[in-house]
Computed example of a mutant assay.
Amino acid sequence: MEQHELLKFVCSLLDRLKVAYMVTGSQATIAYGEPRFTNDIDIVVDLTMASIGEFCDGFPEDDFYLSRPAAIEAVSQRSMFNVIHPSSGLKIDVIIPAATPYDRLRLARAQRVQVTDDFNALFTTPEDIILKKLDWHRMGGGDRHLRDIAGILKIRRDRLDFEYLIQHVNRMGLSELWHALQARVQGN
């Protein structure tokens, strides 16, 4: 199974189950910025105790490794769990969103992105990827997040909602980091 096939598999399942989701992380960075290698799929999924069973049932045991107890715990703790496709070595990080107003807003703002000719999926917006990557960098996530943001700014600068960005940069206490990144990007 190729990465885009696994992405299509999980997103199609979520669409069928009518569970809110958004592709995030490296896949979204690649969709909005510059290509880079990644071996996993990060997806925010608004799973509940009522929907977790059907979600887990969607991954046949012969093809996937999925710990139901870990999935149930992740839903109850609003954390994450993994789905692994052993024959390809690919992994899905299933992230249960926090019950914060910003996380609800991010999920509501998700937009359809054409992944292949016959498949589209809901992706987090480029503005929300920038905000989350700034936050991850601030928490010690490394310069990779800043490089990803620089790639998005390079490719999509004229299509970004800077009003939204600045509002949330200020709200999240990311102003200093945002201004430093802006200076760095404009210097290149």
Rank of each mutant, 00 (worst) to 15 (best):
Phe55Thr: 03
Phe55Ile: 08
Cys56Ser: 04
Gly58Phe: 05
Gly58Glu: 04
Gly58Ala: 12
Gly58Ser: 13
Phe59Asp: 11
Phe59Ser: 10
Pro60Ala: 10
Glu61Asn: 15
Glu61Thr: 15
Asp62Tyr: 10
Asp62Ser: 14
Asp62Glu: 14
Asp63Ala: 14
Asp63Ser: 15
Asp63Asn: 15
Asp63Pro: 09
Phe64Ile: 11
Phe64Gln: 10
Tyr65Ala: 14
Tyr65Leu: 15
Tyr65His: 15
Leu66Arg: 07
Leu66Lys: 07
Arg68Gly: 08
Arg68Pro: 11
Arg68Asn: 10
Ala70Tyr: 07
Ala70Thr: 04
Ile72Cys: 04
Ile72Pro: 02
Glu73Arg: 13
Ala74Glu: 00
Val75Tyr: 00
Val75Asn: 00
Ser76Asn: 10
Ser76Tyr: 08
Arg78Leu: 12
Arg78Gln: 13
Arg78Met: 09
Arg78Val: 05
Arg78Ile: 06
Ser79Pro: 02
Met80Gly: 01
Met80Ile: 02
Met80Asp: 02
Met80Arg: 02
Phe81Leu: 03
Asn82Val: 08
Asn82Ser: 14
Val83Met: 14
Val83His: 10
Ile84Val: 15
His85Asn: 12
His85Cys: 12
His85Glu: 15
His85Gln: 15
His85Gly: 06
Pro86His: 08
Pro86Glu: 07
Pro86Ala: 09
Pro86Asp: 09
Ser88Tyr: 13
Ser88Pro: 11
Ser88Val: 09
Gly89His: 06
Gly89Cys: 07
Gly89Asp: 04
Lys91Asn: 08
Ile92Lys: 04
Asp93Gly: 03
Val94Glu: 01
Val94Ile: 08
Ile95Cys: 01
Ile96Pro: 00
Pro97Trp: 01
Pro97Tyr: 06
Pro97Gln: 05
Pro97Thr: 02
Ala98Val: 06
Ala98Glu: 13
Ala98Asp: 14
Thr100Ser: 13
Pro101Gly: 03
Pro101Met: 09
Pro101Trp: 04
Tyr102Met: 10
Tyr102Gln: 08
Tyr102Glu: 12
Asp103Gln: 12
Asp103Tyr: 08
Asp103Val: 02
Arg104Thr: 05
Leu105Gln: 13
Arg106Asp: 02
Leu107Ala: 06
Leu107Ser: 07
Ala108Gly: 10
Arg109Ala: 03
Arg109Thr: 02
Ala110Tyr: 04
Ala110Phe: 07
Gln111Met: 12
Gln111Ser: 10
Gln111Trp: 03
Arg112Thr: 04
Arg112Tyr: 08
Val113Gly: 02
Val113Leu: 03
Val113His: 06
Val113Met: 04
Gln114Glu: 11
Val115Lys: 07
Val115Asn: 08
Thr116Val: 12
Thr116Leu: 11
Asp117Gly: 11
Asp117Thr: 09
Asp117Cys: 05
Asp118Pro: 04
Phe119Thr: 05
Phe119Pro: 07
Phe119Leu: 08
Asn120Met: 09
Asn120His: 14
Ala121Gly: 05
Leu122Tyr: 13
Phe123Ala: 03
Thr124Pro: 03
Pro126Ala: 03
Pro126Arg: 01
Glu127Lys: 00
Glu127Met: 00
Glu127Leu: 00
Ile129Gly: 03
Ile130Leu: 01
Ile130Pro: 00
Ile130Trp: 00
Ile130Asp: 00
